[in-house]
Design a protein around this nucleic acid. Structure first.
Lengths: 151, 151
DNA sequence: GTAGGTGCAAACCTTTTGCAGCATG
DNA sequence: CATGCTGCAAAAGGTTTGCACCTAC
């Protein structure tokens, strides 16, 4: 999907729900959809400020909250109290592996996982609405560095 | 396993690694192992202060960090920036479902899940060391309340 | 005796909020 | 032109840190 297309999906969705489409929101949405990384609120703020230095941190947080509620953006906690966001539009459901050496995030997907979680929820009568799955460990290249590098 | 037994496992482990076994640590460990709930750092502090009002918040955090590193305690982020801890000694590996209505935490366990995660890690050459899996949704009794209660 | 641990208070970091003014629909 | 949104600055909440004193080994 093209960026402009995604942008107007978000715009229409928000307008239909009575939200206003302000310059700030347009900019924040553009930047959030344009990034393929997992970004923090602060990184997104910096990105936006390169275009318009007057965007405030509060507006970025408020807009991220709206986008998260609408399901366009997904927030993942990093395990150290912070959060990173990723855009969801046009992305399949997936989970994350986080390398504790280089902090890089790898995405993976497993359909059977979905089924197991659905079954586990059914067993205890829980209605499964969303999940946060993070595997911590060491990525391939950091394992190599471990073996190759000096002790 | 009896509490005193667990306590001395922790004591021995820490002593062997050159940590000192202080009154504060003994108290904090006793309280942490004695709780079957998922507690916050602050709740643990309160518990400890009932026995010794002079325990400081900093010491609780410092001790929790030591215990987490040693693998006796596991920290789970609650999704709203905070964390809760649980003791791991004598508990099988398990995951959590969090009810977004009543905030209660349900534990579940699924061996096949382990296998799928191991397989997914293998596919991308990742060494899987620990994980954080949290399913958000609505628990059985809050679903009932939803249906039964007024709209 | 000497690391290492503790308590206190202040610093930190990320996120939220109150409020007055602004801009969208 | 009414309401929702924004920017600012301050508050909040959870966690970490600097430092002087204390204590386990």
């Amino acid at each position: 999907m093209k960026p402009e297309q995604e942008q107007s999906i978000v715009e229409n969705h928000l307008r239909q729900r009575g939200f206003r489409w302000t310059n700030q929101r347009a900019l924040i949405v553009r930047m959030a959809l344009g990034t393929h990384d997992h970004f923090t609120a602060d990184e997104l703020l910096d990105l936006c400020r390169r275009t318009d230095p007057r965007v405030s941190r509060a507006t970025v947080y408020r807009t991220l909250a709206v986008l998260e509620q609408a399901g366009f953006v997904d927030g993942l906690d990093t395990g150290d109290g912070g959060r990173r966001f990723e855009h969801v539009l046009g992305h399949a459901q997936h989970d994350h592996m986080v390398c504790r050496v280089c902090d890089r995030i790898f995405e993976f997907r497993d359909d059977e996982l979905e089924r197991r979680l659905a079954a586990a929820a059914r067993r205890i009568g829980f209605r499964n609405e969303r999940r946060s799955l993070r595997v911590h460990g060491t990525c391939r290249s950091c394992q190599k560095a471990e073996r190759g590098g000096r002790p």
